[in-house]
Design a protein around this nucleic acid. Structure first.
Lengths: 217, 217
DNA sequence: TGTACATCAGTGAACGCGCGTTCACTGATGTAC
DNA sequence: TGTACATCAGTGAACGCGCGTTCACTGATGTAC
């Protein structure tokens, strides 16, 4: 055993982490193996003793976004407590936060890479589906039970992701901020986590929003 | 004048149209000039008598998505009448339709290319901003006037775009359909275009949804 | 109508470049004694 | 403690390839007469 146990797994993790950051910033095609290996402090030649191909690495990166809690860094810095019953509004605020908007390198992959994945193969799509289902599931658990719970959770997720994706395509930073604000506001209303009401008695009342056809029923 | 007047503009349009389809399908990086020119029925050498560079073509493509009504093909097949007062629900249904989901080639660029544009320069982002503002403006005009009109329109747009972007990343077609349905339902509610109510008297009553904090006021 | 011509749209070979991938080799490491 | 060694993680030159771009040339076109 010429090298200490755990050496190779640690290096492999460094490579995946470098790739994750670079893919988030520049997408799959534009990033070279040389850049990825340099980001891990290595030269390009060693790559193939860790991965079979660039696509293989891509799959590993997408897998880790979900499985490795260390890398769910879009929740970091906002202190989302996944065990809290009020995790819904926390997730919405964190997802649409200025920090998440600016920190592209550590972004949620669903914001940084969705169109790359849409053009990719089955394994990338399966990984994304897992991430999306996890997000919907977290949101759904914070909603008052009802027949509309699942539909509402899926829509809040799509609103959060869509708001961030679009915000990053805009040239006007002010408009991007306005959009993030609008999506946050509406997402919180959809979840029944509206802040104006909650702040009056200092505690969040968890009631779902009354939408038109419900009020009529 | 060895060639008829209008010959070059027509060829240029063919090149842009070929590029638009290929970019929608594969993004900016993965498409070669050879493929684009072949799609226009030409060989690669002639490209530089029409455009200064590949980036120049990219800018031209994004510009045309908005300026040329012929190419707003994501509205086609659903017969959206932009002069109608009920254009809002029509846009939502068309945007989240199965046709728009499947027809990637003729997709709205905000669904097919947002992350490519987020990584691009100012000109691409300016073009996208124009498209987004146009979409928000169309939706806003269909909403009952109120202080929340603009916020609601922006959110509906983000929900439509986000729903489509995410749907295309999922491996399970059934889940993608479910998501499109959920986003359609919630977007129509947000706009006050809820169908269940409208169908009762055969005419769409244009009322905005009562959300939590409004009901409380 | 038919022929010679000037124009220029489009062709395709060629360029340097960086890519993903391969592989013979180097040299850092822990072990044996 | 110090030396010789076997292992294998990592190096960097080399490969074929397709890319964006350039350019000398071809040949299709409308015009002149």
């Amino acid at each position: 055993m010429p090298y200490p146990a755990g050496h190779r797994p640690a290096v492999k993790k460094r490579i995946i982490d470098s790739a994750r950051r670079l893919f988030n910033l520049n997408g799959f095609e534009s990033v070279s193996l040389q850049q990825i290996m340099a980001g891990a402090g290595l030269t390009h030649g060693g790559f193939y003793s860790y991965f079979r191909s660039k696509s293989d690495l891509y799959a590993a990166v997408l897998g880790c976004f979900f499985t490795d809690p260390e890398w769910k860094s879009c929740w970091e810095g906002v202190h989302v407590d996944l065990t809290s019953t009020d995790v819904g509004p926390q997730v919405v605020r964190a997802y649409l936060s200025r920090q998440h908007f600016e920190d592209v390198e550590n972004s949620c992959p669903m914001v940084a890479l969705p169109t790359d994945v849409a053009r990719s193969g089955k394994s990338a799509k399966v990984a994304f589906e897992t991430v999306f289902k996890a997000m919907v599931s977290v949101l759904e658990r914070s909603l008052i039970p009802s027949g509309r719970r699942h539909v509402t959770a899926e829509s809040i997720a799509a609103l959060c992701i869509g708001g961030m994706v679009v915000a990053r395509t805009l040239d006007d930073r002010g408009l991007a901020d306005e959009l993030r604000g609008a999506c946050t506001e509406v997402a919180l209303e959809l979840g029944g986590w509206d802040k104006k009401r909650a702040s009056k008695n200092g505690k969040l009342k968890r009631r779902r929003p009354r939408l038109r056809h419900e009020a009529a029923a």
